[in-house]
Amino acid sequence: MNDVNVIEVSNLTKWYPDVLAVNRISFSVKKGQVVGFLGPNGAGKTTTLKMLTCFLPPTSGDAWVGGQSVSQDPAGVRRRIGYLTEHNALYEEMGVEEYLRFRASLKGVPWRLRKQYVEEALESCRLTEVRHRLVGHLSKGYRQRVGMADTLVHKPPVLILDEPTVGLDPGQIIEVRALIKEVAKQNTVLLSTHYLAEVEQICDHVVIIHRGTIVANDSVETLRRGSDGSTASLESVFMKLIADTDRKAQENSDGAERKKSDEGVRDSAGQETSGDEEVRDSAGQETSGDEEVSQ
């Protein structure tokens, strides 16, 4: 396995008008790795992925995907990634094969190779029998497969999948997971998900994000082993990390409340958010310390 960082995130920060969604996160993904990107809802997962795929510009910091900078060369990054969006929005009035051809042409697959690439994507996602049907007439499981075929069609070196199994029935979940496993043999995958079992099955490395900061960044085994050598389930480790962060946040917000009464309100957006931000700041520092220890 090559030791090159395919995704490198450095101090990436995103401010929405008055919310700090992602706060100076840094992590990296090595070539050939399958990395699970975990976190509760609203943790900043999707925002991070949107920045990595150049959909949103970062407020500060930068990330490099396949050697290209997200802020300097969006076109270069976009050419190197396959991205399955959170909602897997597809053009419903198009046929499956037609949609994939359209996407392949946008992704710069040369005309001569297009037919072959589309054929391969259809086969690997087992879509050949529905190739002529309209996307809008397909079941959710099939749509998800169309979305996967779309991410694979230009054979990108990096796959970024945002909650690929959400809303599917158990059978479909197993199918999509098998597909991801298959794909992961040849590609580098960054996979955002809610399902911890999925991570245990598929991923060899985990990045956990909460309240916009990274609270854990380690291999699955190390994370489960814990400091005292006993093996815990990933679920309990995850819950403990989240609870710890929340507790720290609570303590800091109490501290911040007290501090604020001395310094006055920092942010016009309101006291709540203002307190929250400071909490996140300090939580970020805490966890970056943790990270160094674990590495």
């Binding site: 090559n2 090159v4 960082n5 395919v6 490198e8 450095s10 990296s28 070539k31 930068d62 490099w64 396949g66 050697g67 290209q68 900078s69 300097q72 060369d73 190197r80 070196p157 990096v158």
Partner: peptide, 19 residues
Amino acid sequence: MTAVAQGTAESGAFSNGPS
């Protein structure tokens, strides 16, 4: 794949502005 292999080991080089 080979293009990626250049990697971000020297990621500093990429942070230069276009100018």
